[in-house]
């Protein structure tokens, strides 16, 4: 409240980096440092191919993480994405399967593939619309709503696949999208789409009105409304986009494996949330960036792959995730508090 500090000659106050920039740089530095540390501990870790793998193996979670991050910045959870991945994948298979199969699980609706994808996406969007309806219209906490819709989406997938999977009687072009390699390298289409989506998201977040509105809503919902921002509509759009991306991921995964598996994407919603939190996005809203989320994903990938490299049991991944998120949150709180002291 003091006006005294304002009167210090301005030339003497060097402008500091914003808290957000500071945290994002911190995340990048930690990611790089962890990679170097892992290189010392794990043989053959320090390889270009390994760096590429860290990104390409995580295309699905990073894709999901983009709108999970946007929603988190706006002050909302989205834990339904893993369920939507399963649902849209299963739907795309079911719609595309020809109707003359030998049993229930091998016969579908026989739609042409493009139409099947489109309808699967609409199914995903329906879940997103449910999220928006319950969160925005009824004002129910997003954590409970999206846990519920996650179960609904996965539940529908389980009913369609009778609790297992559908993988027969599919047209040949079904496996095309998920396995298409690009530019003569081994990089597949889903990875390229993820990178494109990520770049667009960075642009939207930094340069576009849509991105800034997300921050305004997260930073101060009431001031946003009084400044003429249509909060309900914006949150609705975010849930729809998030569902659309999750639907796309589900369709691509189904294509990659040529199957619709009702348990696909299990825990992906938690991983997407974990990488967003690791990337410095705060649930208090209005703070964080998708760049941070991207490097949060790298941190998680380095930690888990290094753990595998050190022949730790895969069961360690849960503990490592817990510790990583815990450290990220404590460090972030501490670092920001210390800077602003």
């Amino acid at each position: 409240m003091s006006s005294l500090t304002e009167n210090i000659p301005q030339s003497l106050q060097r402008e500091k980096m914003s808290d957000e920039g500071f945290i994002t740089s911190l995340v990048v530095i930690v990611a790089v440092a962890l990679f170097l540390l892992a290189s010392l501990l794990v043989p053959n870790f320090f390889q270009w191919q390994n760096v590429v793998n860290l990104v390409t193996n995580n295309w699905a979670v990073i894709s999901l993480g983009i709108f999970v991050s946007f929603l988190l910045v706006s002050g909302n959870f989205d834990l339904s994405v893993g369920g939507i991945v399963a649902l849209s994948g299963v739907l795309s298979v079911w719609f595309a399967q020809s109707p003359d199969g030998a049993n229930a699980l091998s016969s579908g609706l026989g739609m042409p593939y493009p139409l099947a994808i489109l309808c699967a996406l609409i199914g995903a969007l329906a879940i997103g619309a449910m999220n928006a309806l319950f969160v925005v219209r009824l004002g129910i906490p997003s954590i409970i709503v999206t846990l519920g819709t996650m179960m609904v989406a996965r539940g529908i997938a389980q009913v369609i696949t009778q609790g297992s999977q559908r993988n027969t009687n599919l047209p040949d072009e079904f496996g095309f999208l998920g396995n298409l390699t690009m530019f003569g390298t081994s990089v597949k289409l889903p990875v390229v789409l993820m990178l494109l989506l990520f770049l667009v998201a960075v642009f939207v977040e930094r340069k576009m009105v849509f991105g800034r509105i997300t921050y305004w809503i997260g930073a101060n919902p009431e001031a946003a409304t009084l400044s003429g921002i249509n909060r309900s509509w914006h949150i609705t759009k975010l849930y729809l986009f998030s569902a659309a991306v999750a639907g796309m991921v589900g369709i691509l995964l189904a294509s990659e494996f040529k199957s619709g598996f009702s348990n696909r994407g299990t825990l992906m919603e938690f991983d997407a949330l974990v990488i967003a939190l690791l990337g410095g996005i705060a649930i208090t809203g209005g703070f964080g960036s998708v760049i941070g989320m991207f490097f949060g994903a790298i941190i998680l990938a380095v930690v888990t792959s290094a753990a595998t490299g050190m022949v730790l049991s895969p069961d360690w991944q849960f503990i490592l995730k817990a510790i990583a998120v815990f450290l990220a949150i404590v460090t972030q709180t501490w670092a920001v508090a210390r800077r602003n002291r």
């Binding site: 800034r212 305004w216 930073a219 101060n220 001031a223 946003a224 009084l226 209005g286 703070f287």
Partner: peptide, 16 residues
């Protein structure tokens, strides 16, 4: 609580 986005900068507050 109603007018400002306190954790954003002056530049980010003005155009909203």
């Amino acid at each position: 609580t109603q007018g400002l986005f306190t954790n954003l900068t002056i530049r980010e507050n003005i155009p909203v």
